[in-house]
Design a protein around this nucleic acid. Structure first.
Lengths: 161, 161
DNA sequence: AGCCAAACCATAACATGTTATATAACAAGG
DNA sequence: CCTTGTTATATAACATGTTATGGTTTGGCT
């Protein structure tokens, strides 16, 4: 069956990027599921942002992640319910809610940073290794590569080396 | 404000591809809004698939678009309500529902194919023109390019030439 | 013939993105 | 100081992807 998104080239580049991104995330999800806290992979990017940049207001978080503010508000609420972050109104400006990693959140990040993120990073780097040339060709190579060996298999093989 | 997804490199490639894809689609949406039928850009890919490959069963459509079957089922229902496609149980096999462009659907595709899709294709090609090198660099260039001039502006400038 | 597994599609529940809009806190001018 | 505009966040409504599961229809095997 012809892959229409590939055939249409630039016209459907947006859909195609989204599709590849979703597959990468789904693959990464399987690797993250090993941790005891069940979180979606996109939540980890929020935690990573806090770990990297320190406490941030909701809007700043949105900006640093490149998503809209309502999306961050929702994710923060979810993570706060799980006890991984805290959102405390700022003293200077009561409109702002500063989002901070809790101790549990920091522990989770530390575990992920040590045990899981390097593997994902390595597996994706492996997937993209040796790519060159036009964007569409590189994307096709990624699609083919993922179809041939999903990320979790690349991690296992990498670990065996 | 630091762009965390960029900083994290391969680790967040999935999120980043999704983010770029969403922005491209949003930009393309503004160009499509000119047509009289208000459709989301992802629905157009479904119509494009039918135009390109002819009538398809729901499952085949899902496969050719690279999405899951429930997603296609929902989109088809929506497009059927708008009178752009028809989904008729096959005679040979009552399990299959063959999806076909209606006359109105074909007209819409023809208009899009003539007036809009070439512009989008051209604008995205323009955006990606001259890209080379590692994937992450090309993605950064796309992000910067979109920030500097969204697709609709590229179309206008292209048309003026 | 009759039964059982597989194939195809629909539906439900959820995740997570968006836009549009409401609310509350701040800031500045009359 | 009060109004008024702006800023920060929350909420609602929607779009569209996913997985899990259920219900028909087929088709093959005994």
């Amino acid at each position: 069956m012809e892959d229409v998104l590939r055939s249409l080239g630039y016209l459907c580049l947006g859909s195609r990027l989204k599709r590849i991104g979703e597959q990468l995330q789904a693959d990464a999800q399987r690797l993250l599921d090993g941790l005891d806290v069940p979180l979606q992979s996109s939540q980890y990017t929020l935690l990573a942002a806090l770990d990297r940049l320190g406490p941030l207001a909701v809007g700043e978080l949105a900006q640093s992640l490149g998503v809209t503010q309502p999306g961050v508000t929702r994710s923060v609420s979810l993570l706060a319910e799980l006890g991984l972050v805290e959102a405390i109104p700022s003293n200077d400006d009561q409109r702002r809610r500063m989002v901070t990693l809790t101790e549990a959140g920091q522990r989770l990040v530390d575990v992920a940073k040590r045990d899981v993120w390097p593997r994902i990073d390595k597996a994706v780097a492996d997937l993209c290794q040796g790519l060159s040339g036009p964007l569409l060709d590189q994307l096709a190579a990624i699609e083919d590569g993922l179809a041939a060996a999903p990320l979790d298999r690349r991690v296992k093989e990498g670990a065996a080396q």
